[in-house]
Design a protein around this nucleic acid. Sequence first.
DNA 1: CATGAATGAGCATTCATTCAT
DNA 2: TATGAATGAATGCTCATTCAT
Lengths: 223, 223, 223, 223
Amino acid sequence: MAGKWNTRSMVASNIKTVRAIEDDDSSKRRQIVDGARKVFMNLGFDGASMGEIARAAGVSKGTLYVYFADKNQLFEAIVDHVSAQEQLKAAFNLDPSRDTTTTLREFGQTYIRLLCRPEGGSAIRTVMAIAERMPDVGQRYYEHVLQSTIKRLAAYLDVQVANNALKIDNTELAAAQFMMMCQATLFLPFLFQAAPAPSDERIVQVIESATQMFLAAYQVKQN
Amino acid sequence: MAGKWNTRSMVASNIKTVRAIEDDDSSKRRQIVDGARKVFMNLGFDGASMGEIARAAGVSKGTLYVYFADKNQLFEAIVDHVSAQEQLKAAFNLDPSRDTTTTLREFGQTYIRLLCRPEGGSAIRTVMAIAERMPDVGQRYYEHVLQSTIKRLAAYLDVQVANNALKIDNTELAAAQFMMMCQATLFLPFLFQAAPAPSDERIVQVIESATQMFLAAYQVKQN
Amino acid sequence: MAGKWNTRSMVASNIKTVRAIEDDDSSKRRQIVDGARKVFMNLGFDGASMGEIARAAGVSKGTLYVYFADKNQLFEAIVDHVSAQEQLKAAFNLDPSRDTTTTLREFGQTYIRLLCRPEGGSAIRTVMAIAERMPDVGQRYYEHVLQSTIKRLAAYLDVQVANNALKIDNTELAAAQFMMMCQATLFLPFLFQAAPAPSDERIVQVIESATQMFLAAYQVKQN
Amino acid sequence: MAGKWNTRSMVASNIKTVRAIEDDDSSKRRQIVDGARKVFMNLGFDGASMGEIARAAGVSKGTLYVYFADKNQLFEAIVDHVSAQEQLKAAFNLDPSRDTTTTLREFGQTYIRLLCRPEGGSAIRTVMAIAERMPDVGQRYYEHVLQSTIKRLAAYLDVQVANNALKIDNTELAAAQFMMMCQATLFLPFLFQAAPAPSDERIVQVIESATQMFLAAYQVKQN
DNA sequence: CATGAATGAGCATTCATTCAT
DNA sequence: TATGAATGAATGCTCATTCAT
């Protein structure tokens, strides 16, 4: 993957590569990425025009092409940027010393609140929409954002298994199961605009149910 | 839906209304819907051009506008058409007399195979992508396709609860939980093009795990 | 002019000519002409679509082409039809036995009221607009409608000259002068939508002034 | 007018405003206006296509939209531009010290020659044709071109009235009357393409007659 | 590096016209 | 005769991209 990136960058800007490496955050570049993020996430890849992006970024249209070879590459950069941001926001407390019930409960609530932010849906929608035409963009987003969260939860579960608190064969599957269960009746209606973002009350209920279900299946029975 | 269509047709052509009512599937109309479905689902709303749709449908661009007022209405018709198709394909055996384990296992497998068809992802992607700009399209798709399946499974669960085979407070939530769990590690990677459609073997494993988890939580314990 | 018409008709409909002569008013044809008149006069030649004309006429688009070879010929027929109607409406009392003052006064008032009807401007606008692209349409309209009125007034003046009531060298010029003077400050603002149709009061004033001016110039001084 | 333009330019490009203010006539803009004028005046609003205008202006279709928001606004600009040109061309000698007969005679001849230029009719036809759909375009043209000439002549008459050379109640009406009379038998046939532009000889005759008529009515009788 | 003027291919949509029935 | 389904060329307009400065 890293290899792919380098290849691409080199094609786009052979000379300035050296500079780009240490100057990935030249203020102009940052401006563009910030402006483009908003526009792409609100309007989707096709709905976003380079003109609007330029306006949102406060630069000229020409400048866009100084930093990015074309619309596709700008979009890829934005998705990677958003991926990084999402990961930062996914600040879950997975301290191995905390008890499973509390940890899962809090994790679930935080997770759903993250997904159901107004902007939360946009990134997922935007990336998913383009995944067929730009498969590696979809893949990178899945791996960096969704799968990485699964893995972090799985790592926590691994510890609990080792501690004999849980009994799980496949912790990555279990982590994914929990995360999916948490979404039940909440995220998809929100994503399809069939319902507004769920209330806190509703979130608490659903997460509670998911937590109980998870524990019923995976908690080591004490006698 | 039929009612809506009539309204629309009457605006376009008051005289042929009688014909239109019983001939919602005039072959030209069907041709267009079929062609448009492919193009829209592959390229998304913005990516699909009326020219390409016309070519795919084997009609002239002008003919598109004889049957549909504009691109939006053609798209809505396609989504409604796909919704109906998806529901037909969702031929789950939810016979109340069958035992819970088998029923859930088969339901889950059928469900995931449905989702992970090549075309399965496209519709979801395409509709979800447009949901922000065309909220009622997203809403109708969610209700007709996703929520309706949840409700059918919930109805089965209701019977099992009545039979004392299961103990569930909120069967709709439980149905959604099961369906989400079934997807764990399978559907999202497929949707984001981060993995190919899952193997049958993998599906069987994941569904088995989901089924066990569901029963562990909701099955009435016999002593 | 008659010759021209025949030539055109024969091109358009060689066989049905005989029928057309005696059946110029087949009800379908009349329907079409009536519908087309409204649409053409309201929207202009380019603004009118054959579809809208068909709807206004209550026939199918195809039927239009049964009676008229193309849009141009339909338009020409409409203009000729309107010309005939305008002439009928121009029911001026030019009885030679009436005195000049009254006759001119009434003629002027009737003339301006005719021009400043809501539909009065439309025909002039529509025909004038197309005159560059379809010169013979403009010419026929001018001759049948505008010039013919001039000639009728000129004929009245001829009689008054013969009666020694007026002294005019060129009665056709004098007639045109009077008709133009009557329009002063009234018709052009109306035609350019710079003012609404003039009030009756205003019309009376302007016509009075024009009449006095005409008499001052052309009335035989009695001593 | 300049004020309006600035507003429009600022919407399109906030940064180049300074340039735009003093560069209303950037050569590209002038090119477009010149090309568009020819095409609009020859073919009318609907008959003129943006493609043809682009070709006539020697720029690309896209460039048209850099300078004008849409076809309507380009048209309005052309009409305003033509209005200004027409006014410049209407260089009448209305020196108050010249005698009435000569002044009217020369004014009338110049006026008719102006109207009956090949391009003279086109602007009037084109603007009049659109006046129903774009009333303020018609209104502005009438006021800037036709009414402004009436007022200039009326101002001259005012002076003659003050000098006791003429006796006129309503000089604006009188000015309009004279201008209309001058057109008698000359302008309308030309406008409707029912006759070519009148010969100089004919113009002289008609203007002479109009002048005499005007004086007969309004000249102060010396005894 | 940054600009913004300029482009031309592409888009959704309209419409005069044809033709099988 | 009358229809209306079907066409395809043409239209107004947008936008990713280029390039001279």
